[in-house]
Design a binder for these strands. Structure first.
Lengths: 155, 155
DNA sequence: TCCAATTAAATCGTGCACAATATAAAAGTG
DNA sequence: CACTTTTATATTGTGCACGATTTAATTGGA
């Protein structure tokens, strides 16, 4: 007992499994919108920022979603190809690429509004528990990211 | 407020982010063993089953880790290439591929024993909280998987 | 027994993640 | 002003995930 190598004791395995299980619940709902889950996350950020009129660059998406350009660049190209966003180099600083919603991209939000509703309905877990779980996860994330910077003793 | 499309209200986003954050904590530790995280999970299953003398086929790994042959076959080929496992067709049923540990694969367990210890030490989150979080996750997984089978009302 | 159905893996194609490197523009410095 | 450094994104390569299809072996009838 208490074997740290036992699969059943690996919290990370639970995380990994639940993440994939929930994502696969999203998949058919998002497929109706022609989006993958990471693409949906990018759209959520863009919809949010559009509301407050904030311009968005690739690095803004990166810091919000914790993804690098190696992941985002091809993903954004696909979204652009589907006509949901525009990618254009900034005049002021030729290094940055500004990402903006097309009309079609903005409009998609209406249809996307049903996604979380349908997902929660199909889930049969009390919302309060999910909220509590989310708070726990966010706390763990903070713990990882704050003290994670320094402190690698040996090696 | 209470916008279901707000990124901050997406429990799945927390799950996605924490999963990646913890996995990236594992990465350097597992790199010392020459393993990726999914490869490590496969090894955990094999080490566990070896203890009770259970033979393991690809589909056993699949049902334990909830992965299909499209993911497992290439992963297992890489483990075989590194000399950690053997893959051989069963005589009794030529459709089945039996996966067994090589001596080297068995031996790796000793070094792997330090991985969870190092990870937990570097994390600075109370173990009880992680255990509680794990239970929550496992409950949610059960909820998803049990009633998930049927019940897709419309469409 | 012949053959349709099922099962176990493998293969193929797409899309992330992420490390490492490259490219090019801007900022900082003597 | 030349020149190093930094910053922003793109590119390349590897390894998952997963849907869809394929291949081949076994099972289950009629």
């Amino acid at each position: 007992m208490d074997d740290l190598l036992a699969l059943d004791n690996q919290i990370c395995f639970s995380l990994y499994t639940v993440n994939r299980a929930i994502t696969s619940r999203y998949r058919p709902l998002l497929a109706e919108l022609g989006l993958t889950y990471p693409q949906y996350l990018v759209m959520l950020v863009l919809w949010e920022r559009a509301r407050t009129g904030q311009a968005t660059r690739v690095s803004d998406l990166g810091s919000r979603l914790r993804l690098d350009s190696g992941t985002l660049t091809p993903l954004l190209k696909r979204l652009a190809l589907r006509g949901l966003i525009n990618r254009e180099r900034s005049r002021a600083d030729e290094r940055v690429v500004a990402i903006s919603l097309t009309l079609q991209g903005s409009d998609l939000r209406k249809r996307a509004a049903e996604v979380p509703v349908k997902l929660l309905c199909g889930l049969d877990v009390e919302p309060e528990r999910l909220i509590a779980l989310k708070h726990e996860l966010d706390d763990v994330l903070r713990a990882i990211e704050t003290q994670g910077a320094g402190a690698v003793p040996n090696e």
